[in-house]
Write a protein that binds this DNA or RNA. Structure first.
Length: 566
RNA sequence: GCGCCUGUAGCUCAGUUGGAUAGAGCACUUGCCUCCGGAGCAAGGGGCCGUGGGUUCAAAUCCCGCCGGGCGCGCCA
């Protein structure tokens, strides 16, 4: 399909003087009945100074490219091309079969490196679905970059220090056997106490200062608490299939020679000063910052201890040195101004700041999630109830499977439900999360996608043998549904490129939904195993196989697995 | 108040980067399991694409104003 579009552009640019590839737009007609590829001529007609009708007449024989294009019609200001379904369809299937697990990848990242940092949840509680949006987007992007051939490394920035962690460490001394389940309560308690008890708050700062100065005993205490919490959080995230290559401790960036060099540069620009309260501060105005809000960026407190910004700048520089062609960080929209600030600092010292992927918050139907008011949805709670619900259905429908296998499938269904519900929405938009519909597994959901795959697998299982992968030279296509399915499959590589370019996994999610809808429609109107003759039966089996392959590749990028049955 | 994001069917979301009659799911109405899995399919009702202007052959899409929602403006991270 892609090469046909390329051919059309070649033919037209060669024939008409003074137009380039980008002048030729390609879209598709609103209905298959009107053709497969549409070329709007309005802009071309203007550019070439040729009347529309005239241009259409001249264009028709040009774009009727043998043997791929059967027919060209002019309709309004468009040229509509009808493809030869047999030839093009056969080629699409051939391509899926030959590329297999890599179908969809253009390997645009071959020889390049990608670094993605995501998640970085404060070690103070079990993650809720809002926090997990970061992890799901980040993980999906990581999968996309790997798929496109990038040498990809995934980083998790461990927030193992700071004032609030100091308070948590302080209070953990008073609680016996503090574990992951009790940590949120301890954290909330510690912060409340710091608000009402200045002495306690001061002790927190002191502890933090000791930690920074390298007091081994204090350091160990920090590590003990944060490690315990991180371990708990990672356990929940791993249920989602989210994994990391590197864990970078914030506490190893409290002093950085490299950053101090950057600060020297800032000094020469008149952007670094010690304020009236003895804090080391950057004035962003000399660097080109135009607003008053957020103009000052504090690096160190009066007692010399580092602020988050200092450590993060050092960390960002460290990541930059790893030589990635794509340096990406996934952040909540609340970090926008903050990232703007550190980006300005870095770029004015000659560094390239990372490209941010911002996402908006997940809201509940009732409003914002609030830990205090108790209306948060914990990721583990959601997975537990989704898994339990799914298990009931699996027990009904897959009686012959062992209990172990049934549980495994139920868990896969639960994961797909949450991942799809979150990933299908464009990151910049709020997700309104409705637990009830997320647990229903009906309609446009992850389980629906898995279900359509399970149906294909069921057909292939019943067929019993391996479906041959050699394609008939005149591949038989009788029904619109067959053709629509193949056309959709052929869009997959372009969809991936779009998705990676825009750093937006929801584009893949939309594609997977379209594909599943078209498949189920095909499934209901085109009998496969009972097809009218052997040739068509084989062709439909091959269409099923190609659809499954494409769907599996797409779902893999979303972190959704495809069970054999469900 | 200032800055960034956002507004599409009753609800939750798409909309191929400016193209033809704006599409899905949920909910509602109707039909479909003797037939490859009903977590499904087919059909129907439901839309001043927040609002007012502008740009042009063409605007849900681009520009400006207004209105509603989200986020930010820390000795937090």
């Amino acid at each position: 399909m892609l090469d046909i579009i390329k051919k059309i552009k070649d033919v037209l640019t060669n024939h008409f003087e003074g137009i380039q590839e980008k002048d030729i737009l390609i879209s598709s007609p609103p209905d298959v009945k009107m053709g497969d590829i549409a070329i709007p001529l309005f802009a071309l007609s203007k550019k070439l100074n040729v009347p529309l009708q005239n241009l259409a007449e001249r264009g028709i024989p040009l774009v009727k490219i043998e043997p791929y294009v059967d027919k060209v019609e002019k309709a309004g200001g468009y040229l509509n091309l009808f493809l030869n379904r047999s030839i093009v369809g056969g080629q699409i299937i051939q391509q899926v079969f030959s590329k297999g697990r890599l179908f969809g990848s253009s390997m645009s990242g071959k020889g390049k490196k990608a670094l993605i940092e995501h998640t970085s949840i404060n070690p103070n509680a079990s993650p809720h679905v809002g926090r997990a949006r970061n992890a799901m987007i980040g993980d999906s992007l990581s999968r996309l970059f790997r798929f496109e051939g990038y040498d990809t490394e995934v980083h998790y920035y461990v927030n193992d220090m700071g004032r609030q962690i100091g308070l948590l460490v302080l209070i953990s001394d008073e609680i016996e056997n503090l574990d992951f389940n009790g940590i949120l309560q301890a954290y909330v308690h510690a912060n409340q106490r710091a608000e009402n008890d200045p002495e306690f708050a001061q002790k927190g700062y002191d502890l933090l200062a000791q930690m920074e100065q390298g007091n081994e005993e204090v350091r160990k205490k920090f590590f003990k608490v944060t490690d315990m919490c991180l371990k708990g959080q990672l356990g929940v995230l791993r249920r989602l299939g989210v994994d990391y290559d590197y864990f970078d401790r914030e506490s190893s960036f409290i002093e950085s020679e490299e950053l101090n060099k950057v600060l020297d540069i800032l000094k020469t620009k008149g952007a670094l000063f010690v304020d009236e309260e003895q804090r080391l501060t950057v004035d962003l105005a000399p660097l080109g910052y135009t607003q008053e809000e957020g103009r000052y960026f504090v690096l160190r407190r009066a007692n010399g201890s580092s602020m988050y910004g200092y450590r993060d700048l050092a960390y960002t520089i460290y990541k930059g040195h790893r030589g990635a062609d794509e340096d990406i960080i996934v952040l909540g929209e609340d970090h926008k101004l903050y990232l703007q600030q550190i980006s300005l600092i870095l770029s004015s010292a000659g560094y390239t700041p990372p490209s941010p992927v911002f996402y908006s918050y997940i809201l509940l139907k009732e409003g914002k999630m609030s830990t205090r008011q108790g209306n948060v949805v914990l990721l583990s709670d959601f997975l537990d109830s989704a898994s339990a619900l799914a298990l009931e259905r699996v027990q009904e429908q897959c009686k012959e499977l062992s209990e172990e296998e049934q549980k495994l499938i139920a868990e896969q269904v639960a994961v797909s439900a949450i991942r799809f519900a979150v990933l299908r929405v464009t990151p910049t938009k709020n997700v309104i999360f409705d637990i009830e519909s997320a647990l229903s597994f009906e309609g446009d959901t992850g389980p629906y996608l898995q279900y359509s795959c399970a149906r294909i697998k069921s057909i292939l299982r019943k067929y019993g043998e391996k479906v041959p992968t050699n394609i008939l030279t005149s591949f038989p296509i009788r029904q619109n549904e067959e053709w629509l399915l193949l056309r959709k499959i052929s869009e997959f590589p372009l969809t991936i490129l779009n998705s990676i370019e825009q750093h937006n996994p929801s584009i893949i999610a939309g594609f997977a939904l379209d594909l599943a809808h078209i498949f189920t429609s095909f499934y209901h109107s085109c009998p496969v195993l009972q097809a009218e003759n052997e040739e068509i039966r084989m062709a439909r089996l091959q269409i099923c196989l190609a659809t499954l392959r494409t769907m599996q590749n797409a779902l893999h990028l979303l972190g959704i697995s495809v069970p054999e049955r469900m």
